[in-house]
Design a protein around this nucleic acid. Structure first.
Length: 552
RNA sequence: UGCCUGAUAGUAUAAUGGUAGUACGACGGUUUUUGGUACCGUUUGUCUAGGUUCGAAUCCUGGUCGGGCAACCA
């Protein structure tokens, strides 16, 4: 245990707080999504941070739904968020909702009114915006700001009772209309919304704003470290103001830079557009950066946690290269995925000196990375094989370690073959390749003394089964679609999905287990798609193998 | 033009006044019945100008550049 990894700035803060005996060394974080959409890889960073910090320092983490805006939130999203957090491998201490605190929040508001620190404003949204001034000009108070405490109390009670229509009145904190921080210019605390809430139903027609709900919820739960993203920095003064004036538990807010990944978009709004405009199948389309999309694509929870660990945490804007995500999933799958042979783009090889009706059983291990190969499976071999079209060239370049006239390769787990000739159709496409095999070169007891550079995969023609294979590429053609001119959708990659209707798979793959990753030798990692059936197998490519081969 | 933030290889991240390190990427090599894996090597960096100091990525001052802030969203 000599490994000393340096701490990120949040870990440093936590360690300092523990050393100082703050909160008796107790650590409680929270992950606070609004249930208005599906979680994506950016949320995974926040989840790993909040849960990871608590785990590391013997604390706990609450899952709290920030459901203060009933018009946007749905139970469906609550369920999907819970599923995703669990799938990532984290357990929350308590499942909580900001809406659980609506009564307390109402009382907090009354407290501030009584202290003369909040008032009911009858102005319209436009008027309030105009009266707020601009970053360089102070705002100006209106006539409602000086309303008496009793009147405010009565009006606020009437707002709650449903006496007023949406937008007629709001409750505002009385702070400072000339504050340099715009968020302190008498921010809204409550607005009227006669809307049905996914949990509280029709009990309420006034709902607290984020700023009046979040810090207070943190305080109610006695959250010690409230971690959020950079754009909330200007809210921190307000967060602290409410806590101080209400004299409640002093939770502290800390901010980190959100994750940006290149060649994709991360905003809920944009992801929603991709779904609605049918550029992708759904939220869990394997090309989406959503947790459900990554899951369907074949990413494992461990690989995503590892990724979040490797990207680090800091306060500067960042753009992470997807190659790191791909590295993480390859590293995980390389150790666990069973190897199988699949020919994606087939061409027939005929072994002219192998008996026509003969079948021979070869053996191949499941995983060369694992102790003992984790067992293996039998592979029927015959004189007719499907091989990959790209493994043969009419005029091979110098370092092409595959097939061409006179060239030899090893058929994985079988014999070495030598290419003798080939046939073409009328339009010049190669149709069949003729080879001779070396009987003494059988895998496992090769006495031929022949060394070949290349090994290729194959599937016996009479024994092959078929499957549809879907190959995915990055969703966008440019690194940062949101930052390009015009609509981000103009930069979609038209070739992000390639469907191969008929690939030849080795028979064993008919038993493929949903959710498990397989390495199709030399072709990448694949997993069963959710639409796959026994009659029609469908495999999706999670990621390619790293490919060092470049045509000279 | 106000306030708040931030700036270290291509991308991230560390060094907390004392040798600028790590990972991914790229490039090259060794091993290999996957052009995978593993292993080894190479490459490239402190935004800028001053100052403090024996010594500055780190502290100070000015500038430059990036991000955020004027939702009855979170």
């Amino acid at each position: 245990m000599s490994e000393e990894r340096s701490l990120n700035f949040l870990e440093e803060i936590v360690e300092e707080d523990i050393a100082a005996g703050k909160n008796g060394g107790r650590i409680l974080t929270r992950f606070p999504p609004e249930p208005n959409g599906h979680l994506h890889i950016g949320h995974a960073k926040s989840i790993c941070l909040n849960f990871g910090l608590a785990l590391k320092y013997g604390g706990k983490t609450n899952l709290r739904f920030d459901d203060t805006n009933p018009t946007k939130e749905e139970t469906e999203y609550v369920d999907s968020i819970k599923e995703d957090v669990k799938w990532l491998g984290f357990e929350w201490a308590h499942e909580l909702y900001a809406s659980d605190y609506f009564d307390k929040l109402y009382d907090f508001a009354v407290t501030l009114i009584k202290k003369g620190m909040a008032y009911v404003d009858d102005s319209s949204a436009e008027e309030i915006a105009a009266q707020k001034g601009t970053p360089t000009e102070p705002g100006i108070p209106n006539q409602y700001r000086s309303r008496g405490i009793e009147e405010n109390l009565a009006l606020f009670a009437e707002m709650k009772a449903g006496k007023y229509p949406d937008g007629a009145k709001v409750l505002r904190a009385k702070i400072d209309l000339a504050a340099p921080n715009m968020h302190l210019r008498d921010p809204l605390m409550y607005r009227i919304k006669h809307a049905h809430h996914h949990r509280t139903g029709d009990k309420w027609c006034i709902y607290p704003m984020y700023d009046f709900a979040h810090g207070e919820s943190d305080a109610i739960e006695e959250i010690t470290h409230s971690i959020c993203t950079l754009e909330f920095i200007p809210h921190r003064d307000l967060y602290n103001w409410f806590i101080e004036k209400l004299e409640i538990f002093p939770s502290k807010q800390y901010e980190f830079a959100r994750l940006n990944l290149n060649y994709t978009v991360m905003s809920k709004r944009k992801l929603l557009q991709l779904v609605e405009d049918k550029h992708v199948e759904d939220w869990d389309d394997p090309r989406m950066p959503t947790i459900s999309g990554l899951r369907r694509r074949g990413y494992t929870p461990a690989s995503i946690r590892d990724f979040c660990d490797r990207i680090g945490v800091a306060k500067r804007e960042n753009m992470i290269d997807v190659s790191l995500l791909e590295f993480c999933i390859r590293e995980d799958l390389n150790k666990t995925a069973w190897r199988r042979m699949v020919v994606l783009d087939p061409i027939k090889m005929i072994i002219t000196n192998y008996p026509e009706a003969q079948t021979e059983t070869m053996f191949s291990e499941n995983n060369p990375e694992a102790e003992g190969g984790e067992g293996g499976r039998e592979l029927p071999f015959s004189n007719e094989l499907w091989i990959e079209r790209e493994d043969f060239m009419e005029e091979p370049p110098k370092k092409f370690f595959r097939l061409g006239i006179g060239l030899m390769v090893r058929l994985k787990s079988a014999y070495i073959v030598k290419c003798d000739s080939f046939t073409k159709d009328a339009s010049g496409n190669v149709t069949e390749i003729y080879c001779t095999y070396i009987p003494e070169s059988k895998s496992g007891n090769d006495t031929s003394g022949i060394n070949v550079k290349g090994t290729i995969h194959w599937v016996s023609v009479p024994h092959a089964k078929t499957a549809e294979v879907r190959l995915y590429d990055r969703l966008f053609r440019v690194e940062d679609p949101s930052n390009e001119d015009g609509d981000f959708k103009e930069y979609l990659n038209p070739d992000s999905l390639q469907i191969l209707p008929k690939a030849y798979i080795e028979a064993d793959l008919a038993k493929a287990i949903p959710g498990k990753g397989y390495q199709f030798i030399r072709k990448g990692y694949f997993t069963l798609d959710k639409h796959s059936t026994a009659d029609k197998l469908i495999f999706s490519r999670t990621v390619t193998l790293k490919d060092g081969w470049k045509t000279p």
